[in-house]
Each structure stands twice: as C-alpha cells, then as structure tokens.
Amino acid sequence: MKKSFIIILMGVMSFLPSWAQEESKGFFKKHPFVNMTEFSLLFGRGKFENFYSFYRGYYPQPYEPTYQVKNHLNLSVQTFNGFYLNPKTAFGLTVGVDSYGSTILMPFSAGVRRTLLQKKQGGSILLGSLDAGYSTNWLNEDNTGFHTKGGISINPAIGYKLPMRNGSSWLINFGYRFQRADYTQERGDDYYWYESNEVRKYKRVVIRFGIEF
C-alpha cells in the first residue's frame, strides 16, 4: 500500500511541472505581458502653504500661515508592468521616481492602459491611462531636522501608441499629476523648541515619452 502511494505521488509530481508549464504558456498566450517605460516632464505653478502646529518655550506665540508661489519644471521616470486582460485593456503596477526640487518621491500605483481608438490593424492607437497609488520617501535624503513623507499620487493621461515593425511601440502621452507630500521641521535649543509643518500639493501638467515592449 505504501509503495503504491509513493508511485502515485511520484507520478503526480512528475506530471505537475509539465502541466504548470503548459498552463503558464496558455496564460501568457491569452494575457501577454507588457512593459511601458516612460520619461516625463512635469510643468506647474505651485502654491506652498506653511503653518506651524505649535510652539513651546518661555514666550509662546502663534504663527500665521505663509505662502510662496513659483513656476516649476520637474523630471520623472516610470515603468508600467502588467498583463493584457483583453486585446484592448492592460492592468498592472506602475513604479516611478519623481523629482520635486530637492525632494525625491517614489510612487507605487495600480495602473490601467486602455485602447480608446484604432482605425486599422497595426496602425496608431489612441491610448488612455490611469495610475493611482501612494508615494514613499525611500530614495529621499533629508537635511538635519527635516522629515519628508509622501502621499497620494494620481496620474490620468491620454496619448498615442505608435507601433513598430519589431512589435514594440513608441509612446507619447499628455496628462495631469497630483502628488501630496508632508514636510516637518524641528528646531530648538536649551530655551525653546518648535515644530513646523508644511503640506505641499504638487499639481503638474505631464508630457511622457517612452516605449512599450
């Protein structure tokens, strides 16, 4: 009985790899893997709000919010990796690196890519995309007394996919990016100590250039 069980188990184990290989081939044939890597230019005019949460010392006093408005050009790179759920829709994970002046944020987002219009087979495609997630501060280095925290990141876009003969495609997209970040600064000495907090909501027009593999 024990020998029979071992023989059956060995037979099942020998069958599983070939079955899994066939299943994976069938899955990837039905749902092809896709990678879209893009470089972005981020244009915007930011209004930063500074406010002090509290002040402790011998002479406590409140601080009024202050504002600063500037034009900005920032850089970003991102890669979307996923699978085609059907010939027109791909779903996956988008990972990026965004530079906002001295701040580096790394957004992780759920992403979707959808063919909106294609007049002929093999021709250019009108492509819609949406990425939504949360940014981390993993790549950011803060000065002494400063603490940076990422936040919600949303990036809808629309553009064109231009197929090439080798199966890849050039990508150009125009969109909007919203990114929240929180900044904390701590200062003090033997006589006083205070903490200031700043909330920045980066709102940028985005132009993305890249390639799909």
Rank of each mutant, 00 (worst) to 15 (best):
I125F: 03
T66L: 11
V34Y: 04
K119P: 00
F83M: 09
F48I: 12
I172W: 02
S18F: 13
R45M: 08
F213P: 07
F178C: 04
Q185H: 14
F27M: 10
P87W: 06
F39C: 08
P17L: 10
Y100E: 01
H72D: 03
V112Q: 04
V112A: 15
Y134A: 04
V77I: 15
G159W: 04
G128P: 06
S76T: 00
L16T: 14
G188A: 11
M164K: 09
T136E: 07
V95H: 04
K201Q: 12
V205G: 09
D189S: 11
W19P: 00
R180V: 01
T184V: 12
G175R: 07
K201F: 08
W170Y: 13
K120E: 15
V112P: 01
H147Y: 08
S168L: 04
K25H: 10
R187Q: 14
P65F: 13
M106A: 13
S129V: 02
W170L: 15
F5I: 14
L42N: 08
S4W: 09
F51M: 07
N74T: 03
P163D: 10
P62A: 09
T148M: 09
R56P: 00
N74K: 01
E38H: 08
R45H: 07
T103I: 14
Y183G: 06
V69W: 06
V97P: 00
N173C: 03
K149F: 03
P163E: 07
N50R: 12
S153L: 03
M106C: 09
N197H: 13
F39E: 02
L85H: 05
L162A: 09
P17S: 09
A181C: 07
K120Q: 15
T89C: 11
Q21W: 05
F51N: 13
I158V: 15
P32N: 08
P107M: 06
Y191Q: 13
L9Y: 11
L9N: 04
